[in-house]
């Protein structure tokens, strides 16, 4: 070594960033921050609404206003009718999507040539906002619940088909060889190897499909305003009642959160291993 070098003490980056916050806080930091973030948002909104700073053209909702509107709304039988209608549309639509999507997805994944034949159509419908098919659905099925169920299932269908087919295609080749080496029939290979391996993919498809289905409910109800939570929103807009409108929107938020929670339960039940990230669309 050249002369003039000297020994220096090692210092680390970690030393400079060591936290000085009390321990009780560090332990609960996540919940404390989440809660205060939400509380701050609600309080600022309420205060701003009260001192009249939130007076946009036709918008003047506040948290307390929403609660008031909600408490009035839940006492009306019509409201529960609307909720039941939207819930039925979502459930029936998702049911149809699942009932058609899983078998078709399995067929596309299992029979290579069927897959090739469906490819252009799948690509096209994947790229197309399915919601744009609404005017056609109205032509074919009218303005009633059937049309809305169809809209929901169209929205959800492709989110089920694509991951299901993907799941079948990515079944471990070794497992298939095991099946063949034991002289299992095609049918047995399918039910004992392919199907179980595909279930996690189907469930992750369901997760995406739920979001699509909800969009289907909203847009279909906006488009043909007969009954449902979407109609509450549009009618409130026309009456310039932004409190009631936000209550309607929050209902959709809550159903979105509940449904995605339900899917995670399903996932935990069936899915010991997770499929890849980039499955969406």
């Amino acid at each position: 070594m050249t002369a003039g070098t000297q020994m220096i003490a090692v210092t680390s980056n970690a030393e400079r960033h060591r936290s000085r916050l009390p321990r009780w806080y560090r332990r609960r930091e996540a919940s404390i921050l989440s809660f205060s973030g939400l509380a701050a948002f609600v309080i600022i909104w309420q205060v701003a609404a009260q001192i009249g700073q939130l007076d946009f053209t036709f918008f003047f909702a506040s948290p307390t206003g929403i609660i008031e509107a909600a408490s009035k709304e839940v006492q009306l039988p019509r409201f529960w009718d609307d909720v039941a209608t939207s819930a039925w549309e979502l459930l029936a639509g998702s049911g149809v999507a699942l009932g058609l999507g899983v078998p078709i997805g399995l067929a596309i994944g299992w029979y290579r040539r069927v897959g090739f034949m469906f490819d252009p159509w799948l690509n096209f419908f994947n790229a197309l906002p399915r919601i744009a098919l609404l005017p056609l659905l109205v032509l074919w099925l009218g303005l009633g619940t059937e049309m809305k169920i169809a809209a929901v299932s169209l929205g959800a269908f492709f989110s089920i088909v694509v991951p299901t087919a993907q799941g079948v295609k990515t079944v471990d080749r070794n497992l298939l060889d095991v099946g063949r080496s034991m002289d299992a029939s095609q049918g047995r290979i399918f039910t004992s190897i392919v199907l179980p391996a595909t279930v996690p993919y189907i469930i992750s498809g369901i997760r995406i499909a739920i979001g699509r289905g909800l969009i289907g409910v909203v847009v279909a109800e906006f488009y043909a305003q007969t009954k449902g939570i979407g109609v509450i929103i549009v009618k409130s807009q026309q009456a310039l009642n932004s409190d009631r409108m936000l209550f309607g929107i929050i209902l959709f938020t809550i159903s979105g959160i509940l449904l995605s929670y339900a899917t995670s339960l399903l996932e935990r039940r069936f899915q010991k291993w997770r499929p890849g990230q980039d499955m969406e669309e």
Binding site: F222, S242, M245, L246, I249, G256
Partner: peptide
């Protein structure tokens, strides 16, 4: 988790 599309009537108000 909200179908953000549902916010459109609100946006129109604003």
């Amino acid at each position: 988790s909200t179908p953000t599309i549902a916010l459109f009537p609100l946006i129109v108000l604003i």
